[in-house]
Design a binder for these strands. Structure first.
Length: 718
RNA sequence: GGACGGUUAGCUCAGUUGGUUAGAGCGUUCGCUUGACAUGCGAAAGGUCACAGGUUCAAAUCCUGUACCGUCCACCA
């Protein structure tokens, strides 16, 4: 360098540089190489240790596209599958998609709507044909997206939860339950979605806070009133005594069959057993006592509408009250009188409030924030109403699941989800398994038009996907799975139901370990939501940073299910790391070209201090990576390798190697690099395989493909 | 209402059973064509570990309480 100020300073851009690693050039090619190798299919794997290792995928909905949750979940699964494949297990990760009843029906209906058609215009048969067409066209998009992520799924075994064999599984399962007397039909208050025209289970609801009003309504007490069943005029009202109730849904008073108060409530003790006249309809209904009623809330007295409220229904059951259905399946008033019948719920509410006001029976109105149940698919307000549905008795099934979880047959990772699962199973209610939608498995009962809850078929996935009820080889070899990775929001909806189903039909839990992974939140700590536009598309990230960097970035942040505040910086780190590795490989292969026998372990006799230190550290890294992966400490494992590669190998040893040209040093360089590629392969499969293939060409390694190369053993270097 | 998780550098997060000067990546500042890498190399600044008590020779770590953020369960009329 010169100090002459006139001498132009070297500009960085003038310096010839190596081309950075470009994932786009290699990822597709490498994925094809793997597919051609056949090693995604366990039947083609080398003999190995003779053990099998199965992971269950959560079959994505055919309506879906990959989101960050999928990306994390499947990265974790693929990391485990690749790790075990290299360790000599016959690994099976079976792909599939879920028919997703309501979601798919809605998606196709939406498309029809664009042409001004409804599903009723087409009729059931035509409509179902349309859905199948739609499924052919779009149903595999999400699986292709998993390929982009590098997931090593056995595509030859791909299943769909509505394919023929699967329908047989569903039928067999139902008939089994029926034979055991666990199926019954009942007229029960169910969660009814007026838009989708179907019943929903408790788990299919979401609650949203809505601003509403709390109306205080005065009901005249019969004994102390001039009221009678013919109604009253203004003078009678003045002379009456009342009991006041608070409600957010005044229109449901048309279906009231009682007033309830807490038995300990001194204010109302004398009134229990008396009757009131229900205004507007002038029915006489009793005042009953029930401990469910909170003394503090509202007036402490509650109107009881057993047909349209689950809690009220319980009170009615205990007190033998009649159940009067006044709202029908399309959300209109029925069974009241000419004045109200046929009105929509909102119209009825306005009319009831108006008339009560005229009569002077509204004591007051308060602003009130109310938690309203919504359909988890279409977000319409749920209307509880009595309906004939099919139920599965849960108690005997839940008991089996509870036992298996309690005795450790199934473990949870992190462990805290165990208690949460047990809690749900211990308090579970019977499962309403019938739905009134068209797209789904038919309930195999004569003249029954109903379909099954999608989760009924999903619950059978761990064995139905392997061919059950046929006694297939796959079922024998690959049931049950070692691991399932899942988001926590389907812990009960899916995981718990798979557990009791597996125990019931296979006499064995469907998996050993449940990994509940982090929820990927946005930077503000809020849930990513497609509808709110706050989601990040993982495919865009793959495009920008490469699949390896995306995977590594996600895994690098995965510590014990702790939620991830997603930050793109981490992916940049992953991308830089990939580039670093690329350059390390370039350096090593240039330096050692033609000099090294393939795959030889270095001879450490007479090795220098730096070499010994590196080899020692490498041994520790192998051990720590292996241990951490076995304990599902994904983040730690990624950190361990990252630190070794960058700071021990590149910063120290490669720099050291520049001062020495001995054969020993060269052998150690190759040995360390190949070991690193193996350790890193489950995390960053594309770049490691790409480099590996170059080493194969240069005759620096013996094993022809990294995906089934042997996982390094720390003892060989210690 | 019940349960659980979190709070550590400007940002996103590690910190295993309590034990020297609490770490990483990104960002910031300074220097750098160094045998692969400027997506790099070398250095530096930056922390009352949410708060208040307690246990201990010793606390980010264990205990109690408080505050705030978040999740799940229950659905309160």
């Amino acid at each position: 360098m010169t100090n002459d100020p006139d001498e132009p300073k070297n500009n960085i851009s003038d310096i010839p540089r190596g081309k950075p690693y470009d994932p786009k050039e290699v990822e597709e090619k490498i994925y094809r190489l793997w597919e051609q190798s056949g090693y995604f299919n366990p039947d083609n794997l080398p003999k190995g240790n003779g053990k099998t290792y199965t992971i269950l995928i959560a079959p994505p909905n055919i309506t879906g596209s990959l989101h960050m949750g999928h990306a994390l979940e499947n990265t974790i699964s693929d990391t485990l599958i690749r790790f075990h494949r290299m360790r000599g297990y016959k690994t099976l990760w079976l792909p599939g998609t879920d028919h997703a009843g309501i979601a798919t029906q809605n998606a196709v209906e939406k498309e029809l709507k664009k042409q001004g058609l409804s599903r009723h215009d087409l009729g059931k048969e035509e409509f179902l044909k349309k859905i199948w067409e739609w499924r052919e066209k779009y149903g595999n998009i999400i699986l292709d997206q998993l390929k982009k992520l590098g997931c090593s799924l056995d595509w030859s075994r791909t299943r769909f939860t509505m394919d023929k064999e699967y329908q047989e599984a569903v039928r067999t399962a139902f008939e089994h339950y029926q034979k055991k007397g666990l199926i019954y039909q009942g007229e029960r208050v169910v969660n009814w979605c007026i838009k989708d025209q179907t019943a929903l289970s408790d788990l299919e609801l979401e609650y949203a806070e809505e601003k509403s009003k709390l109306w205080y309504i005065k009901y005249p007490i019969a004994k102390n009133s001039k009221w009678n069943k013919f109604g009253v005029g203004a003078s009678e009202i003045r002379n009456s005594k009342f009991i006041t109730v608070a409600t957010t849904r005044p229109e449901t008073m048309l279906g009231d069959t009682a007033i309830a108060v807490n038995p300990k409530d001194e204010r109302y003790k004398a009134l229990v057993g008396q009757t009131v006249i229900l205004p507007l309809v002038n029915r006489e209904i009793p005042i009953v006592a029930d401990p469910l009623i909170e003394i503090e809330f509202g007036t402490g007295a509650v109107k009881v509408t057993p047909a349209h409220d689950l809690a009220d229904n319980e009170i009615a059951f205990k007190n033998n009250l009649p159940i009067l259905k006044i709202i029908n399946e399309v959300g209109k008033i029925i069974n009241v009188n000419e004045e109200f019948d046929g009105l929509k719920i909102s119209e009825a509410r306005a009319k009831v409030v108006g008339k009560l006001k005229e009569l002077g029976l509204i004591e007051k109105e308060e602003e009130f924030i109310h938690n309203v149940a919504k359909c988890y698919r279409c977000n319409s307000t749920i209307e509880p109403l009595p309906s004939k549905q099919w139920f599965l008795k849960m108690k005997p099934l839940a008991e089996k699941a509870i036992k298996a979880i309690e005795n450790g047959e199934i473990t949870y990772e992190p462990e805290r989800w165990k208690a949460i699962s047990l809690d749900w199973l211990r308090n579970v209610r019977d499962w309403c398994v019938s739905r009134q939608i068209w797209w789904g498995h038919q309930i195999p009962i004569e003249n029954c038009e109903d379909t099954f809850d999608t989760w009924f078929s999903s619950a059978l996935w761990p064995f139905a996907a392997l061919g059950w009820p046929q006694e297939t080889k796959d079922l024998k070899n690959f049931y049950s799975a070692t691991v399932i990775t899942s988001a926590r929001d389907i812990l009960h909806l899916w995981i718990s139901r798979m557990i009791f189903s597996g125990l019931e039909f296979m006499d064995q839990a469907p998996f050993k370990t449940v990994i509940i992974h982090a929820t990927v939140l946005n930077k503000e700590g809020k849930r990513m939501s497609k509808s709110l536009g706050t989601g990040i598309d993982p495919l865009e990230l793959i495009e920008k940073y490469g699949a390896d960097a995306t995977r590594f970035g996600l895994i690098y942040q995965t510590f014990g299910g702790q939620d991830i505040h997603f930050n793109e910086n981490v992916l940049m780190m992953g991308k830089k790391f990939a580039n670093k590795l690329w350059n390390i490989a370039r350096f090593v292969s240039t330096k050692t070209e033609g000099n090294i026998l393939a795959n030889n372990e270095p001879d450490l006799d007479g090795a220098d201090e730096e070499s010994l230190a590196l080899i020692k550290k490498l041994g520790e890294t192998i051990k720590d990576t292996t241990d951490n992966l076995q304990k599902y400490n994904f983040g730690e494992a990624a950190h361990v390798i990252y630190d070794f590669v960058w700071h021990d190998f590149a910063d120290k040893y490669i720099e050291h190697s520049k001062t020495k040209n001995t054969k020993d040093v060269k052998m150690i360089l190759v040995y360390a690099l190949t070991t690193i590629l193996k350790l890193l392969h489950p995390f960053m499969p594309f770049i490691t395989e790409t480099i590996w293939q170059e080493l194969v060409e240069k005759n620096l390694v013996k094993e022809k493909i990294l995906i089934v190369a042997e996982w390094p053993n720390q003892h060989s270097v210690l």
